[in-house]
Amino acid sequence: MSVASQDTAVKTGGIAKVFIYLILILFALFYLLPLYVMLTNSLKPLSEITGGNMMSLPRDWTIEAWLSAWSTAQVGVSPTGLQPYFVNSILMVVPAVAISTVLGALNGYILTKWRFRGDTLLFGLMLFACFIPFQIVLIPMARILGLLGIAGTTQGLVLVHVVYGIGFSTLYFRNYYASFPTELVRAAMIDGAGFFRIFWRIMLPVSGPIAVVTIIWQFTNIWNDFLFGASFAGLSAMPMTVALNNLVNSSTGVREYNVHFAGAIMAALPTLLVYIVAGRFFVRGLMAGSVKG
């Protein structure tokens, strides 16, 4: 494989190669700069930031800011740190991702293997959900959450994110299952497997790549969401993103930049982790949908 591809790769001379790498490295550095600033400053005492260069490495390495951001910093009115909100976010993200992925898989399965009159129209309408701007639905959604009696709760946020997630997860699974041979479903029908049995025993075992894509996509979107969290979450259900905002805006005297940096990294870590763990499958899953094996 690698031997064969050497012949087809574009040949470049030595100088060109150096030039290309130089530019690539330059861009990479530029891209990594904010991360560097955040990391180094989160590990400095506050006096070093206010008094010195933001770009320099810490003279006194300390994790004081991290501990403070996690458990003692002032968030809004209470000095709790980000810890409880981190838990809120987890409680919101895990069920929301799980439910929207499972529903998306079921929808994709039905839309491709149990075709019915008007199914393409229905799929088109579901696709529409991907393009509706969030702002439009804020007020109707608030009303619905109120009617259901889950306004301000984590369950309410889960519902909102599931409703918004289904459009994308259905799109992913439908396109993946469209290239899955229908003869297999027919064979399983003749073998006596029912609707859910076919889904569970035949479809799901081969859905790994697209499930990973969906989970990463949903996890990132729901974890990073600010608007719905700020609009619909009460104090007890406030997610990490909103809490981070409150942390930065709660000024009791000095602005603790090092704590803010630490908090921001904490808020970003879970999505980073998901990418690192499952990123390999992400690309593979994206390819699987487009290139028929």
Partner: peptide
């Protein structure tokens, strides 16, 4: 009558073997 209750068996063009 449902396919599974007709006591028939089918061999498909693509064989339709369950890949997993």
């Amino acid at each position: 009558v449902h396919p599974s209750k007709r006591n028939i068996a089918m061999v498909f063009q693509s064989y339709a073997l369950y890949p997993n």
